[in-house]
Design a protein around this nucleic acid. Structure first.
Lengths: 273, 273
DNA sequence: CGCCCGGTTGAAACCATTCAATGTCAGTGG
DNA sequence: CCACTGACATTGAATGGTTTCAACCGGGCG
């Protein structure tokens, strides 16, 4: 298959029919405006088709689903994989859609949002470089969440059929899949235990430590709404906590980035109740 | 292997060396008292070895991990599987232990408990008939939670090595495994979205509906501590909510069972904020 | 019988929510 | 160039739900 079919609902129509290069940007690719379903209308929902994925040259190929597979000899099989760029607010998929792919996040941050029947919603996970979104589509007919780009996101779209074929050809991929699944469970449990337990202060401290991994000093900045939806507190409370951390000089924000200035202090706070 | 080795830490020493029948109870099997690690001391921590599992005759064999496999011809391979009975409060496994098995719950309810460094803890999942506990052990070196029996629990212990062998022999088991994993993720997300969002009243209503599945009118009764640890509220609040539901005639408790008397009313409450 | 465990209940303190106002910055159009 | 606007973040004040701490109660059990 040289030319994969574009999905009907979640994705923009292909803007070009010949395989472009990975670095190219499709300027006329903005075709899909989502506003729907959610209470809070997304601001920017553009999706750009960048091109066919170049797995062989992929900078993070050792961290993705196909890690360990002979990507070189696989190349023809991997053609259906497409490379996309999502503007902040754009959806990779949603429960109502009929998309049938999983996504490997190459850069940026994606939030998985789940709604209650009364309109309340929670962010149940954040996905980052190397993570896979939409795994559930491998065993279910639909997605469990809406996957929404938090900032600019680059992601490769992998049809579930392709994953199934790969499973048959290379059983070793099962190990990778199980690992991914377990990682999802771990993260979900961590959100539950660390981010919805204790005072708003302690939760915020733990969220910041999660956003800014050890060894690093910065991570993606989140809207206060999203922080609230992660920790189960109101956006105002999230704002108060973050503002307080900033006043104490533990933290700064700018250019869509969060910078940790005093990790020790935040870690102390994270250990409180 | 006719005679599997007993685990060193989590499990009681085998009480008999010949294969007993599935219905038999080992009266001298109480060998393991746990007290340890947790702040809240477990009340009753006895474990009884019932015998070697009889998978061929298993009443729920179509709902367990091996569903779809030719259990009859597999029988010799399945010998290492042991059948256990856990008293309320007994641990199936815990993070510090060196056990190396997964467990299929045949009856009863198991809670998965996760601790924070400050001593706080949350119940991140409840497992019931047909569920598998300890899946993470298939890809990790240790368990992520303590698995504690809520009421009397019957569970089959399946060494991870055995699962690995089965995987090689019957790749179709992968489908089952992925399904289980996805189920774990779904439940975790549900706990996060439904049981830690909204007022204590609404959370309690949702927890009750979760404990008492549709089509049924009863489910396992939980201690107020456990309810609190599931919903992220204090035990007193959980008690107030449940007592209130009882006063309204929506609910009753007795003999370790929870009975729903007015599901509609509880569902209405579950939809509130 | 009395102890212990767990559930219930009350009252006060506390923390988070709510609602509303203000502030800020970037983008837009006159 | 500069009001104007919209999207967010921040902040204040009042409200209300939850927690906390303590007392009380009831059943099971030695």
């Amino acid at each position: 298959m040289v030319e994969p079919v574009p999905p009907k609902d979640e994705m923009p129509v292909r803007s070009r029919s010949t395989a472009p290069c990975i670095a190219s940007r499709s300027p006329d690719g903005r075709l899909w405006g989502v506003n729907d379903v959610t209470e809070r209308p997304a601001r920017c929902t553009d999706v750009h088709w960048v091109g066919r994925a170049h797995c062989v040259k992929c900078a993070i190929r050792d961290r993705v689903l196909f890690a360990g597979l002979p990507v070189d000899e696989l190349e023809p099989m991997l053609r259906p994989i497409d490379d996309f760029e999502f503007d902040p607010g754009a959806r990779l998929y949603q429960p109502q859609g009929d998309a049938d792919s999983v996504f490997t996040i190459r850069s940026g941050t994606v939030k998985l949002v789940q709604y209650l029947s009364n309109g309340d919603y929670r962010v149940v996970r954040l996905l980052r470089q190397g993570d896979v979104a939409g795994l559930e589509r491998l065993v279910d007919e639909s997605y469990q969440h809406a996957a929404v780009a938090v900032d600019r996101v680059c992601a490769c779209r992998i049809p579930v059929d392709l994953v199934a074929s790969l499973e048959r050809a290379y059983p070793s991929i099962h190990q990778q899949l199980m690992r991914r699944w377990q990682q999802a469970v771990d993260t979900a449990d961590r959100f539950l235990t660390e981010l919805t337990t204790g005072s708003a202060q302690a939760r915020t401290a733990r969220l910041l430590l999660y956003l800014v991994p050890p060894q690093s000093v910065q991570g993606p900045a989140l809207h206060r709404d999203d922080m609230g939806a992660i920790m189960g507190v109101s956006p105002e409370t999230a704002s108060r906590m973050v503002a307080d951390f900033k006043r104490r000089g533990w933290l700064s924000e700018g250019q869509g980035m969060l910078r940790v200035l005093d990790r020790d202090a935040i870690e102390r706070m994270a250990r409180e109740h």
